[in-house]
Amino acid sequence: MHRLFAAAAFAAGVGAAGAEQPRDFETAFSTAAQQEEPGFQGFDAGRGREFFNTTHGGDWSCSSCHTDNPAAAGKHAVTGKTIQPMAPAANAERFTKAAKVEKWFTRNCRDVVKRVCTAREKGDVIAYLLSVKP
């Protein structure tokens, strides 16, 4: 459901897949969040940071693989494989492809939060990652 929702938001909001900017995702998630949450007040980098660094009922947090320093490379919690930094300021490829962003949010949220993330959670995470300077 959420996935379709976000995909529709993208189609409406940012046009053709493959050439998005991180800010486009904030805009699209914001549109979706307004529909999901009547009292939605905008994204919050601090809340995103908290969400990213804490566990949500399972063994892992987002930072288990992505580290708590998004300007630095992470390490996959199971395999040890290096994961390039998450902050767009440190890795220009981040949040530039809608299909990739949706695919990983869906997988990683299911592993960490045991469900898909809400548009607000995703927007908060992006706001946080955009606030990180290398």
Partner: peptide, 11 residues
Amino acid sequence: LSTHFGVDASL
């Protein structure tokens, strides 16, 4: 692939 060795790798 959704429970791929303990990790969600769904495609």
